[in-house]
Amino acid sequence: MDLRLDPLQERLRDAVDAVLTRTGEPYAQLATIGVPTLNAPERFGGLALGLSADIVVNERLGYGLEPLGCYRATAFALDLLDGDDMPTEHLAEVVADLNKGARHAVVVGAPGPASARVASDGRLWGESEPLPRGDIGLCVARAVRDDGTVGWHLVVPETGTCSVESIDHFGMPASRLRFDGAAARPLTVSTAHWERALAAARIRQAALLLGMADRILDVARAHVNTRIQSGKPLVRHQTVAHRLATLMGEAVGWRLVLHKAAWEIDRGERCSTAEVLAVAAEHARLASRTALQLHGVRGMLAHSTTATAYRAIAVESVRLGTPADLWLEAASAT
C-alpha cells in the first residue's frame, strides 16, 4: 500500500496546473498535453490510462475553478459508446476533433427520467438538460421510444435538425441542445456497461468537486489570516480555525476514498460509486458555504470568488444526481 501520489499522477498534476496558467481556451490547451485522450478507450484513439490518472486532471481543474464540463462529458460519452460494437469509422473525423479539444461530446438524459423521444422513423425530438458550453460534435442521448421503452442513441448533430442555444445555468455558462428530428442511431448499452460508465463519470465528477473545495478553502484560509476583527486575525478565533481545520482534514480523507475507488474501478473490482460522489458533493457544498460565511458580506458580492464557487459547486454537485438520491442508491447497493 502506498498512499502517496505516484510519479505519473504527480507529473500530470503539474502539467495541468501549468496549462491552466496559459491564456486561451482551456479545453484546447489541455489537448496540447494530451489530456482529452488520457482515459478515452483505445478504439477512439485514447490512452486508456484509467481513472487513477483522470481524477488528478479533474481535481486540478476543480482547484483552478475551471469546471470544464466538456472534458468529463466527452469521457462519459465515449465510455458509453465503447459498450456498443457498432463500427465507428464514420466517426473518425469527429473523434479526431474530440482528441484535439476542438469539439466535445455530450451525454443527454443521464440524470433522472429521459425527456427526449425517438419516433418510429429514428428521428429524435426534444431538448437536453443544461450541458457544458462549446462545440458539440457528438451526442449520446437517452430517449423514450415509441413503444415506451427507454434506450440510448447516437446523434451526430447536424444543422437543421439540431440547434445549440447558449444559456445561463445558475449564473454559469451552459448550453442546451435542441433536437428537431435529428437522426438517432440506437445503441446497445448493457446494464453492466451503463453502470460502469456511470460509476466512472461519478468518480470524475467527485474529483472535480474535491478540487473545487480545496480551492475555496484555500481562499477562505487566506482571508481569515488577513482579515482583522476586534484587533486580531479572524483565524485566531477557535470557532473559525476549527471549522477550516476540520474541512481541510476531511478533504484528505475523502480524497483517499476517491483514489481508492478509482483504483478499484481500474482493476475491475468495483462498479458502484454513488457514495463517493455523495461525500464529495456534500463536502464541496459545505466548503463553499463555510467560505462564504467566513468572508462576511464581501463574500456575497456577485463576482467574488466565493460567490462564483458557490454557484459552480451548486451546479456541479447535482449534475449526476443529488446527494440525497445518491445515498439512497448507495443504500441499495450495500
Partner: peptide
C-alpha cells in the same frame, strides 16, 4: 433484509466515513 431508505442511507454514510478513517490512519 438489507436496510433501505434513511436507515440504509445512514449505514452507507457511516461505511464511507469509516473507510476514510482507515485510510487516514494508514497514511
Amino acid at each position: 433484509g438489507p436496510p433501505t431508505g434513511l436507515v440504509g442511507a445512514d449505514l452507507a454514510r457511516h461505511r464511507t466515513r469509516i473507510a476514510a478513517s482507515k485510510l487516514l490512519s494508514c497514511q
